[in-house]
Design a protein around this nucleic acid. Structure first.
Length: 302
DNA sequence: CTCCAGGGATGAT
DNA sequence: ATCATCCATGGA
């Protein structure tokens, strides 16, 4: 019987959150730990356990502070101006109206980097699984609201593990990459905070030096952790959107073409535009699975 | 069962 | 510079 008066629940703090949609934002594939709980979500911002729910234009929360939530959820981003800067075309307009209130978070750098090193060739649900496994195995539990929260483990904690332990978390071939990157950071041969002073191109190059980080992961980290709102990650979903909705007549779309087009077409907040296109595509996917394959003409011999 | 997933590293052209 | 192949794992 655990039902003792949970007065933790009746004393939620409040912060104004106009032009914000908590559910859409947390479900948009940029962050991998928050889980539905009650009428809101439980998770952590850095090492701070947080519960948060939305009611209209207000966030009600426990844990953390108004300042912490405002920063993490980027409530200060001028979302109207950002959305108005998107190009005016059918695909973008569909995405913009579908994703109202979606904001690009300001995530902790290491957590974001490590999560996206794990992300390659994995669905969002799998990345969440790996994140949860890493947290449970390599960080310290914090009691919170009758449950337990696992913050994301430090680079040092990962660095002191082994490839075998990381594979046990379901990382597969990503394990040596995460381990090697964690070791560089723990050894202080790379300081993720220092990189924040670099201009976009140099930041991207520095991130791509890390094992398991290529252009796509680097762009995700730039967008979700370094507030480089022009960074435009191109994954399989975005590539599909570009092919099908922007260049339906082209037979081949090379990586280079997609990169060069998206960098200036989507403007100074291209990363935001990308996230809207990504979320819209992923949530409105129609079963593109069963395409009749050419039947192999070896049914029964004669 | 098969197909696919928020790709990157490597080696061959 | 571009292209092919391999890399683990689990959901649909």
């Amino acid at each position: 019987m655990v039902s003792r008066a949970d007065n933790s629940r009746s004393k939620l703090k409040r912060v104004a959150a106009p032009d914000f949609d908590l559910v859409t934002t947390l479900d948009s594939g940029q962050v991998f730990y928050w889980r539905a709980e009650g009428s809101g979500f439980i998770g952590a911002i850095g090492d701070e356990p947080v519960y948060v729910e939305q009611e209209g234009d207000v966030l009600r929360f426990a844990g953390g502070s108004e300042k912490l939530l405002t920063h993490y959820f980027a409530l200060d981003h001028p979302l109207n101006e950002i959305c108005a800067s998107f190009p005016n075309d059918p695909a973008m307009n569909d995405a913009r109206s579908f994703c109202q209130g979606l904001r690009i978070l300001r995530q902790p750098k290491w957590e974001c980097l490590a999560s996206f090193i794990c992300s390659s060739m994995k669905q969002v649900a799998h990345i969440r699984q790996m994140s949860a496994a890493l947290r449970q195995r390599f960080s310290t539990a914090i009691s919170f609201r009758g449950g337990v929260i696992y913050p994301f483990p430090s680079a040092r904690a990962i660095a002191e593990s082994s490839e075998k332990e990381l594979r046990a978390c379901g990382l597969g071939y990503r394990a040596p990459n995460l381990l090697a990157t964690a070791r560089r950071i723990a050894a202080e041969s790379v300081d993720l905070d220092d990189l924040a002073s670099l201009p976009d191109a140099e930041l991207r190059a520095a991130l791509c030096e890390l094992p398991g980080v290529g252009a796509k992961v680097a762009n995700c980290v730039m967008l979700f952790a370094y507030e480089r709102l022009r960074a435009f990650p191109i994954d399989v979903w975005i590539a599909r959107v570009l092919r099908e909705r922007y260049f339906p007549r082209k037979r081949k779309m090379t990586d280079r073409m997609m990169r060069e087009f998206s960098q200036d077409y989507f403007g100074p907040h291209g990363g935001y535009a990308q996230q809207y296109l990504f979320h819209h595509a992923r949530k409105t996917q129609t079963h593109r699975r069963m395409r009749p394959r050419p039947r192999s003409s070896r049914a029964g011999g004669s």
